[in-house]
């Protein structure tokens, strides 16, 4: 599974959308089209992140691809079969979802919850066979949720809970897993953890994983492919880096007062310029000093000796000192906070 073919129509495509038009039927009105002409393919072992600004229709696209909502036009194929013609049971054996909404399941143990993922395989009693039990254990182990098995779901933290929900989706042993903002309620370490787990899952089990997220930085670092849905329905596909380089990212997220910085791969606020400032120094302290100066509205120039305003960093093993020079005035500071206070008082 380590090597993923990338040519079109190579047989590794598990979920294909053909000229898909997404949106909503409205009674007594023309249908509300969010985006049209979307043709994409999700391949085995591939981790795809769907990005886009709020309200661009990410959830609608996710729901349409998962077969939870009918497309206005076009069709989706799951393992070569038209989504609308597959029985719910067969579909659930090949495709599973994790949704944004947080559900209150009441008093169930984590392993009971994961076992619900065996729904499409069990008979009408819902009794688990040895194979089912094995699949449940496997799914929990691979997500690192095995120690949670006997814990009650309502007692779990948000991160643990999300792992259990993903384990439940995995217990369906699907070819495709679709996750709608799986990291929405989590703090940064938990988000990195979940993304890393999904990435590993795609590599190890050959699952195709599609997830929507607002976490741009993390998506750019983890995704094999990014699908970008911009406001107005424009749809771009590509390696994350390509989309940054060709400007699709900037265009999709354009907004007053905020700009996408292709150098860091993140957004930053426009600040009214406070002028240029020289910055002397290197290493980690210089990096964070630069950030602080930029936040203050300065544009920091390396080697700007001739500038009237400058900060020089003097690094020692156990202490860093900042020398602020403004014309003839000189001050030595022991922290960045002091540097900023000094600059503000000189302004």
């Amino acid at each position: 599974m380590a090597l993923v073919e990338r040519s079109a129509g190579d047989g590794n495509e598990v979920l294909v959308a053909e000229a898909l038009s997404i949106g909503y039927m409205q009674p007594r009105h023309a249908p509300l089209v969010i985006s049209e002409g979307i043709s994409v393919a999700l391949r085995k072992g591939e981790l795809v992140c769907l990005l886009g600004p709020n309200g661009a229709g990410k959830s609608t696209l996710i729901r349409t691809l998962a077969g939870m909502q009918r497309p206005l036009a076009g069709r989706t194929l799951l393992l070569g079969e038209c989504m609308q013609h597959i029985s719910p049971r067969n579909r659930a054996r090949h495709l599973s979802v994790v949704l944004t909404e947080r559900v209150d399941v009441g008093a169930l143990s984590a392993s009971d919850l994961v076992a619900l993922g065996r729904y499409p395989y069990t008979a009408w009693t819902g009794r688990l066979s040895a194979t089912d039990e094995k699949a449940v254990r496997w799914a929990m182990t691979i997500l690192g949720a095995a120690p949670l098995a006997q814990r009650r779901v309502e007692e779990l933290s948000d991160g643990e809970r999300q792992k259990v929900m993903i384990a439940r989706a995995l217990a369906q042993e699907p070819a495709v897993m679709i996750l709608d903002e799986p990291t929405a309620f989590l703090d940064l370490p938990r988000r990195v953890d979940i993304m890393g787990t999904l990435r590993r899952l795609a590599r190890e089990t050959g699952q195709a994983i599609l997830l929507s997220t607002h976490d741009l930085d993390l998506a750019l670092r983890s995704a094999d492919t990014v699908w970008l849905l911009a406001q107005g329905g424009a749809f771009h596909i590509g390696a994350p880096e390509d989309l940054v380089l060709n400007g699709a990212f900037q265009a999709a997220f354009e907004m007053d007062g905020i700009e996408f910085d292709p150098c860091s791969g993140s957004f930053r606020l426009h600040h009214p310029s406070a002028g240029e400032i020289g910055l002397h120094g290197d290493g980690v302290p210089a990096l964070w000093t630069r950030r602080a100066l930029e936040r203050e509205g300065f544009s920091a120039k390396q080697n700007g000796e001739q500038l009237p305003l400058a900060v020089a960093i003097e690094g020692h093993t156990n202490q860093t000192l900042w020398h602020v020079r403004s014309g003839a005035y000189q001050q030595t500071c022991e922290s960045i906070a002091e540097v900023i206070a000094c600059l503000r008082s000189r302004a």
């Binding site: 998962a66 939870m68 719910p88 049971r89 067969n90 579909r91 659930a92 054996r93 495709l95 599973s96 979802v97 949704l99 909404e101 559900v103 399941v105 009441g106 169930l108 919850l113 619900l116 993922g117 729904y119 499409p120 069990t122 009408w124 009693t125 819902g126 369906q172």
Partner: peptide
């Protein structure tokens, strides 16, 4: 009993599980 258990996760999930 089986669909009732699936409905503990809500209709959307129940449907996604077949």
């Amino acid at each position: 009993i089986k669909p009732l258990n699936a409905l503990l996760l809500g209709e959307a999930y129940a449907q996604s599980m077949g």
